[in-house]
Design a protein around this nucleic acid. Structure first.
Lengths: 258, 258
DNA sequence: ATGTTTATGTCGCGT
DNA sequence: ACGCGACGTAAACAT
């Protein structure tokens, strides 16, 4: 780790070059102007910014506000630093599409290089789509013995999330909500039901599958004969990961034997 | 500006709180784990990351690679820092939609707060001529099926930017503006229309093509029966580059001669 | 390598 | 506040 406060541009240039070489994380707070040419072009006049160079060759130039960088370069760039006149110029070139980002630095408040030890896995929990995926992978989590016949099935008012058959041959229609299901979800499902019917002699069962029910919805479900199955995002994430693991394992074994 | 190397969590917490209060840019390199819940949810185990808090209340958690932060919170968050057990916990809550980002810090390599002086304007560039070029290369960006017949066509008051025919055989007259189109642009186009007419049995359609409309112009267009097509400079730049790639000499030389 | 779809997209604009 | 479209979208995925 190297930390320099108000270094000379020459010192910063030297550290920058060795930091890029050593694939370190480089963080600068500097007064700079920025030019970009490529898919289109941009100019940014002089001002203080946070400049970040990562080990995969991506560049971020952040202003004092906003989530998004004002200028950037995606990973895979060739980065070089050199002193031009009385400025430190950092150039990041992306080969394809050909794009070039040039940061002209006039003064540096802070310069640091860091080594990030980070082996952790990032894990995103389930979204509504993931809930559907989990149900398709393991219909039993809605009801034991359920078989999925179709999903995103088109009916005049829209698309039925999941469409299936229970062990008794009854048709099952599922509406998924990732938030506590409210009246709109019930209405939507009811609309779909108007355009669907069970096989002869069988029932048409409608399910709301959600992590919870909004206040006052339960009586409406009862009145309309709609069933409710509580299903948490956490549970869905588990199911998805379980299947992802077993897929990977299967493929891994198959590959290692081939 | 404050710079601390390997500070205690207590010291960092104090600096963090005053930095948030003073709306500074806060930059940390720290070993942390991150939890997010909101539209969906995520977990990230312990590891070294670059953590940035900006004055508008947005948060970025960057790993050693990739353009995009692994976790973040957009601007407008309420951020607080506090010591919990032997960790420094930074919580960023976004009111709407309700989302919460929790960074649990176990150790800090580097902590800094900065004041960014930055009044410069950011400018993405392309010219009105580029817009015309893009429309000539790909008239569909104004309206699917449009065929260009002429450009810079002379009429008594001046020159029509683009002149063409739509799929129904109606005559199309286009006025291009690179800035939000104001009343002068509308008047100019209206003047041209006096000297143009459609083929027999067909209509004469007038278009303003611009990145935006000035305040109050829309009703004028509606009243005069002039159509508006939003077209960004970026889009034009893309079209131009796409054609530059695919059609290196043919149309390009033709245009530069014209 | 190129095209298509997703995203905790974000951001700006119009209603 | 919500809805819609653009973005140097980037990134993952399929071709």
């Amino acid at each position: 780790m190297t930390v320099l406060v108000s270094p000379s541009l020459q010192d910063a240039c030297a550290e920058l070059t060795s930091g890029i070489e050593g694939r370190k994380l480089i963080v600068m707070v500097a007064s700079c102007s920025v030019n970009y040419t490529g898919r289109t072009g941009s100019k940014l006049g002089e001002g203080d910014r946070l400049v970040v160079l990562k080990k995969d060759g991506c560049v971020l130039v952040h202003r004092g506000k906003d989530y998004q960088p004002v200028n950037w370069q995606p990973s895979g760039c060739v980065i070089q630093a050199l002193i031009v006149a009385d400025s430190l110029v950092v150039k990041a070139v992306r080969p394809s599409p050909l794009e070039s980002l040039t940061i002209t630095i006039r003064g540096i408040q802070f310069f640091g290089t860091f080594q990030l030890e980070d082996e952790a896995e990032f894990q995103l929990h389930a979204s509504e789509e993931d809930m559907q995926k989990a149900i398709l992978l393991e219909p039993d989590i809605v009801e034991p013995g359920l078989k999925v016949v179709d999903f995103e099935k088109k009916v005049p008012p829209g698309f039925v999330d999941v469409y299936g058959v229970d062990p008794d041959g009854n048709t099952v229609v599922i509406e998924i909500k990732k938030d506590p299901a409210g009246l709109p979800a019930v209405k939507q499902l009811s609309e779909y039901l108007k355009y669907l019917q069970a096989s002869s002699g069988k029932k048409l069962r409608a399910f709301i599958v959600a992590p919870g029910l909004a206040k006052g919805v339960q009586p409406v479900l009862t009145r309309r004969g709609i069933e409710y199955k509580q299903l948490s995002l956490q549970k869905c994430a588990e199911v998805i990961q379980k299947h992802a693991r077993s897929d990977q394992q299967g493929l891994g074994t198959w590959l290692s034997r081939g």
